[in-house]
């Protein structure tokens, strides 16, 4: 298989993973106009829970989702009420959220150090049998394929939630115009709390698979996930959850092909694209109108 095709396949998997990793961040911004800078730390916590479940009970990561999703959904709901409504009352929720969640991220990293130590931890490929599968002549770990499949399933669920349920309709109404949604009887706190819970659960779900395809889990890796997720949603369209997929694809392919043809530039090119997108289309590739800064 040529390097070009090889990078194409690897980038698809990478894009699928980062779609689910960044999706929750965009959902929160779209509904609440706040930026959760602790997003990566929630992902890391999800990863640690999956590792603990595999370590203690031998849980397959897919099975772990049955625990991780409800646990972090509940955490999200519980965190929403003391944090987010106060931010909404401030004059500049976006800026206030930056500061608040910056503090939350530091607190969570410190908590992770206390709970899990500073050592790297990973799930092993042999949690899936067979360890490798061959698709179109390309041999890859089953864990990577499962990661991509779960990501696609999560995207489908989010799509279903947003476009096929009454709650989703209210959520989209909030994204489009908060005041009009409220005037039409949308319970802002209830809808926002559920969206916040989903966001945290999505991040934690990505964390379940993160050590397979991205970085070994450690307390300090959350910042990296937040940075990449933030870049992806800006490239796609800030406030449009499904545009996250486009952002992730652009980011992953920029990374993958630069790694092949100019590895020195692999950590730079995706962010050059980010800058170019901001300059050329401030609303993002799929954004409808310019953001207000």
């Amino acid at each position: 298989m040529s390097l070009f095709v090889d990078a194409f396949v690897t980038s698809i998997l990478y894009a699928a993973f980062f779609s689910i990793a960044a999706l929750g961040l965009n959902l929160v911004f779209g509904v609440m106009r706040i930026v959760n800078l602790a997003h990566g730390e929630f992902l890391v916590m999800g990863s640690y829970l999956a590792i603990a479940l595999a370590d203690s009970y031998g849980f397959n990561p897919v099975v772990s989702l049955a625990v991780v999703v409800p646990v972090f959904l509940a955490i999200g709901l519980l965190l929403y009420f003391p944090l987010v409504p106060r931010l909404q009352k401030s004059g500049d929720p976006e800026m206030s959220s930056f500061i608040l969640f910056f503090g939350v991220s530091y607190a969570m990293e410190g908590l992770a150090v206390q709970l899990f130590g500073v050592s790297y931890q990973s799930l092993q490929y042999n949690l899936f049998k067979p360890i490798h599968v061959e698709i179109l002549g390309y041999v890859m770990p089953t864990a990577w394929v499962v990661t991509a499949a779960v990501s696609v399933a999560a995207l489908a669920l989010v799509y279903f939630y947003l476009y096929r349920t009454g709650l989703g309709l209210q959520t989209r109404a909030l994204m489009i115009n908060r005041d009009e949604a409220m005037a039409n009887g949308v319970n802002i706190n209830a809808v926002s709390a559920i969206a916040f819970g989903f966001s945290i659960a999505l991040a934690a779900s990505a964390g379940v698979f993160s050590s397979f395809i991205s970085y070994p889990t450690s307390p300090s890796i959350g910042d990296t996930f937040t940075l990449i997720s933030f870049a992806i949603i800006i490239i796609g369209a800030l406030g449009n959850p499904l545009a996250t997929v486009v952002g992730a694809v652009v980011f992953a392919y920029a990374y993958g092909y630069t790694e092949i043809y100019a590895a020195n530039w692999s950590s730079i090119v995706p962010f050059i694209i980010l800058i170019a997108v901001i300059l050329a289309r401030p609303q993002g590739l799929l954004g409808r109108k310019a953001r207000e800064f």
């Binding site: 690897t10 990478y14 990577w144 395809i213 970085y215 990374y255 790694e259 092949i260 590895a263 692999s266």
Partner: peptide, 15 residues
């Protein structure tokens, strides 16, 4: 390189 993830190294290893 600046790679630090398995997916990034995967691409490099193909090269």
């Amino acid at each position: 390189t600046s790679a630090s993830s398995a997916a990034e190294y995967s691409t490099l290893l193909q090269s």
